[in-house]
Design a protein around this nucleic acid. Structure first.
Length: 282
DNA sequence: CATAGATCCTGTATGC
DNA sequence: TGCATACAGGATCTAT
């Protein structure tokens, strides 16, 4: 389940292996792998040089040299971007293949559950001197983005009438947070996911944001160690899972802070794990 | 307009 | 053993 730290690890690996290379061909092997794209992905990519690899939240994109367009990728639940030798047998869930004019390692998009997708889309100004694909202009900046506006986040969050976890998962408010890091951040902040946004004072929101950044930064540090090989992807994992998760997936385990057993409840068609003592509802 | 819920998908785990 | 069901959840679409 790639969230911001995992996607950033993929971005770094991709940047190292595909930046500057020219796409020779692009083959789409599964219709669902291409989303919201007009025309032929192959026609839009052949002969294009990849300028760099960028990221906002969980989205990756590769600006193309010959136009103001970019190849956009989202890994969804199970997506992987792999660098492989052309002679490596196809993966069972290979959805797209990109070869390069230098005949070096090819880029493969593998996705078991097909929640991920690719597209080529125009770039638009991002309001801070950079560019962002127009299809993700509604995605908010993520907490590790230097241009992230803390004051705006705080006021917009408090203006909402909903539950705090729902707000954390809303990518148009703040991006990059998924179920895992939402649960971990809320546990650290001592906030229940069902706590109403309107009831939070400013200092609570700022404290929560500190925990969001900390948990993501720690995960990134864990995951950043394994991408010096050809195998770019991290399989949606950052190594953080091996280390310490205090809430996510810990149902029935004692809270590492107070010893109370972690509970789980259904929420938004998924699970929320929390400590009933450290994270009171009110 | 803002918010809540349904939906897409398939490998793995569990229950009877 | 075999079949059915639950579960994982990011983004988008639909409903209220």
């Amino acid at each position: 389940m790639p969230e911001l730290p995992e996607v950033e690890v993929v971005r770094r690996g991709l940047d190292r292996w595909v930046t500057g290379r020219v796409i020779a061909d692009a083959a789409v092997l599964h219709a669902r792998a291409v989303r919201r794209h007009e025309g032929s992905l192959r026609d839009d990519l052949m002969g294009e040089r990849i300028r760099c690899v960028s990221r906002r939240g969980k989205y990756l994109w590769m600006p193309l040299s010959g136009s103001d367009e970019a190849l956009v990728a989202h890994l969804g639940m199970s997506g992987q971007l792999l660098m492989q030798s052309p002679s490596t047998p196809d993966e069972a869930h290979l959805r797209a293949r990109f070869t390069f004019t230098d005949q070096g390692p090819e880029l493969r998009f593998v996705d078991q559950r097909t929640f991920g997708g690719l597209m080529v889309t125009p770039l638009a100004p991002d309001g801070a001197g950079g560019q962002v694909p127009d299809v993700i202009s509604h995605i908010a900046r993520d907490p590790l983005d230097p241009a992230f506006d803390e004051e705006s986040f705080e006021s917009r969050l408090r203006a909402r009438d909903t539950e705090i976890k729902r707000a954390l998962l809303d990518q148009s408010l703040v991006s990059g947070i998924g179920n895992i890091y939402a649960d971990e951040s809320l546990w650290r902040a001592g906030l229940h996911g069902r706590r109403r946004t309107g009831s939070l004072v400013g200092s609570s929101v700022r404290d929560l944001l500190i925990h969001v950044r900390a948990v993501m930064t720690e995960a990134l540090a864990q995951g950043g160690t394994s991408f010096d090989s050809l195998y770019v992807n991290v399989n949606g994992e950052s190594g953080y899972f091996d280390r310490s998760l205090d809430a996510y997936g810990q149902e029935g385990e004692p809270c590492t802070r107070c010893g109370t057993l972690i509970e789980r409840e259904r929420f938004m068609n998924r699970s929320s794990a929390f400590c009933p003592r450290c994270q009171p509802i009110s």
